[in-house]
Amino acid sequence: MRIDLTDTTASKINKALVQGRRAIGTPAVGMVLTMVIVTDEENAYDSIKAAEEASREHPSRTLVVIKRHARSPRERTKSRLDAEVRVGSEAGTGETVVLRTYGEVSDHADSVVLPLLLPDAPVVVWWPVDAPENPAKDPLGALAQRRITDMYAVERPLEALQTRLRSYAPGDTDLAWTRLTPWRSMLAAALDQARLRIVSAAVESEADNPSAELLARWLHARLGVPVERVETGGPVVTGVRLGTEKGDIVIDRPEGPLATLTLPGQPSRTLALKVRPTSELIAEELRRLDADEMYAVALRGEGTKENPTHV
């Protein structure tokens, strides 16, 4: 069910949500969080789709904030809020409200979002594009326990990475880091088998890949060895090489979803390492809503107390 509201306010939207739920006959649904997506018109469709798919695992109220830019100066002074309320089958397993802001209200989007948050449930903000310099200090970011950015969506990812490092606050996370989970779990599993001291490490990837940089920093922090960055034709991260006295531990994914794992003294074997769609990344992000300390470690790339750096 879909309710369109033109030139509206948060309280009218709340009324529409109740009305929508009544109409489809589920007055109380077990939604577990509020997801706020801040995006532009261009990326709204894909983001909403990903969020709706992720909501199958985490039923949520999704608030999509789209800031619109008026073309003429006269229009720009006018402030207006339009909303589209979707409940039922059109909104995954939760509810979706698409908020379009024009003019001044765009600078006060938090005043619209605040009354629409689910009571007592965690809030997640996701910027598919155009994330603020300092997510935790952003008016919308400040409402959230968890702030998701994406370094893949910027012009200069490695500069963005430095910005993220400077402004890091507990609760920040980035999809470039989420994309690494399968790699990291396979590397950890490889070291479960090959119980060897690591003496060198290299990460192979396409140029300027933020995930590869995070992976290299993480390996550096955990292993305490210098990590070489090797540029390849991609796509994304293509391989990791950990040197030991007995030979290299290699995960190599030249292309496609199949990777090969080589351990010293053992024949290589294939591994499934798929590049995951955004919806799966978001679903993974929503699984834990507390601060991701490992992301901070990877951003900083420094040795932790338990694993002092030897460099």
Partner: peptide, 27 residues
């Protein structure tokens, strides 16, 4: 001889704070 015995081995890539890494069964 090169393999560190399982009992003494502490996988440097694992950390209890790193809760994204799933419980993967050992070999």
């Amino acid at each position: 001889s090169a393999l560190i015995p399982a009992a003494e081995w502490q996988n440097p890539l694992r950390d209890p704070r790193d809760r994204r890494l799933p419980r993967i069964a050992g070999p």
